[in-house]
Write a protein that binds this DNA or RNA. Structure first.
Lengths: 332, 332
DNA sequence: GTGAAAGCGCTAACAC
DNA sequence: GTGTTAGCGCTTTCAC
């Protein structure tokens, strides 16, 4: 009943554990140690006869490598997260790495319990996070997505929004004056250059007066975003353009509009942020700003880091641009 | 630079590694081994001073417990998967277990590489899967979701659809005669009692003639389901009721209808399968059939299994019922 | 009360 | 070509 170990296999094949280890690691020939094909054959036969499976924990303790990539994704249902997951899934396969997602779970506690060759963290905005990450980085290989953090023993992925948010707002204000914002409730009071701030600045640049009833906020879930969008589109003298601060919110806004029998983009145009796959393939396809090749680029970087954790830490920036698609076409 | 071990801590505190282990496991007093509070204090101080973190791999190799739960979810974007993930996330917290999701990845290869205290597999329909699972179950604690598999060293989660699919169809045919099906392309040719078959039988029971153009199929992604639904609603003499074989397809159908300026449920009613949270909270809320308390029940079962893997394997069945909500209300 | 030591399954020098 | 052996970091029995 006991699960067979390398020892059992060695006994069964009549060789030493070292030989089994070598054979199973595929270093039979050409490499440093030469194991005769006959022996290798015997070992393989014994292993499969016994149903031997290597013990990952033992291997990890010895080599220091777990062949695991951990992705902490704060809001799994967000298309952003799903895009990351999909891209990573494709990238890790050839490297023999298993991607594991930590969903909606608090990485702050989970990482202490579970290690991996590389750990990606998609949100670290809470006070004290910077210090905590610096500490965790001493014994973990971290890659953090953040607009504000600086690398401190870990890598930082940053989207180089540059002036693309301004472009997005200008794109909307070029043909619309009733431009609303759909944003998270937290963003109104957050400090620093936020997406919401770009909205306010965009209005100002276009000489459009700010209206409080054109600002709708939601919590971090689809239902909340959807309801906020429905309410937004039903205010007296409703907006004809919506600047949503994520693709996920933008998609909810499109659905809300359609639900209210408003056509997108004819009755109301919608702009997202993130350039997710979900926005790209939906109907109407979503006009959005976001990084180019972000998901694949991130995935490749993570794989590289998992394989070589020694390289100096860096900031990896993905420049943004505006993707004009159907939900908010250009001026006629 | 080296990550501190139990040995480092022992040296720092001036005690032995055994004492450190005891203290850090929280067995200071009352339990078998009595460690003086003073010593415990010293050890804790040393540990935190050094930033000590236990090595999970080493602990796992010794105890055989990883405190890990693995969830293999075939289609992560499906609300079914997201519901499972959410329920599990809530259930594991008090148990000190970390849930890891294997998304869109092939469990067949991944499980051999990575173990966990319990592994949930949401789809095992390929030929040979039954045998493979039986083999993997020798060294893994598996819980498999399947309508057809029997437990062979692993547990089986099954939804006891019973006659609820018939109820669902009867619910639709009670007030509609133009009832269409939205199903996966694979289901048309699959053997056994499928959801599609329930559709055909339901029509027959109601004396409604089967129409080929009322059967729309999609591949396993949202876009495909959405497009299939759009096409379905645009056939000449379009259906006024849609029987979708998953909540995910049903949600796509609702969006498709709204996109075409058809009101749900006034112009077309939609029925899903699965009773997911996404369907429950959407607007209009989704009429669906599915198990009661499934997600929480599954999550609790998984936690239980993770903690006590010795219990005899069983089939856990979740009886289904019809949830009449807004997308397909009852006959007036 | 505390420590010494064995050993979990595996890998990698190094010896033969 | 193949075997011996020393650990990796941790838990736990048993002796002091």
């Amino acid at each position: 009943m006991m699960r067979p170990t390398i020892k059992t296999v060695a006994a069964e094949a009549g060789v030493s554990t070292a030989t089994v280890s070598y054979v199973l690691a595929g270093r039979t020939k050409g490499n440093g140690s030469g194991i005769s094909p006959a022996t290798a054959q015997r070992v393989h036969a014994a292993a499969s006869r016994l149903g031997y499976r290597p013990n990952q924990a033992a291997r990890t303790i010895r080599t220091g490598k777990s062949n695991l990539m951990m992705l902490s994704l704060t809001m799994l249902s967000d298309p952003w997260s799903l895009s990351v997951s999909k891209a990573v899934g494709a990238a890790v396969a050839p490297a023999g790495i298993t991607p594991m997602i930590l969903a909606d779970t608090d990485w702050r506690t989970a990482i202490k319990r579970q290690g991996a060759d590389v750990i990606f963290i998609d949100a670290a905005e809470r006070p004290g996070d910077a210090e905590l990450l610096a500490e965790l980085a001493l014994s973990n290989n971290l890659v953090v997505f953040s607009e504000t953090l600086e690398p401190q023993g870990f890598d930082v992925i940053r989207s180089l929004a540059g002036d693309s948010m301004d472009h997005a707002m200008d794109h909307l204000t070029a043909s619309h004056t009733k431009v609303a914002a759909l944003t998270t409730s937290g963003s109104l009071t957050a400090s620093g250059p936020t997406r919401y701030r770009a909205y306010v600045a965009g209005l100002e640049r276009a000489g459009i007066e700010f209206r409080q009833d054109y600002v709708a906020t939601f919590e971090k879930d689809e239902v909340s975003a959807y309801q906020a969008a429905v309410a937004l589109l039903q205010v007296p003298d409703p907006p004809t353009a919506i600047f949503a601060t994520s693709d996920f919110a933008a998609i909810a806004a499109v659905h809300a509009a359609e639900r209210l029998r408003l056509a997108v983009p004819d009755d109301v145009v919608v702009m997202g942020i993130g350039n997710t796959m979900a926005g790209e393939v939906m109907t109407p396809s979503l006009t959005t700003i976001g990084p180019t090749d972000f998901y694949a680029g991130l995935a490749d970087f993570l794989v590289e880091r998992a394989q070589d954790p020694t390289k100096p830490h860096q900031v990896l920036e993905f420049p943004w641009r505006l993707f004009v698609r159907d939900s908010a076409p250009g001026a006629p």
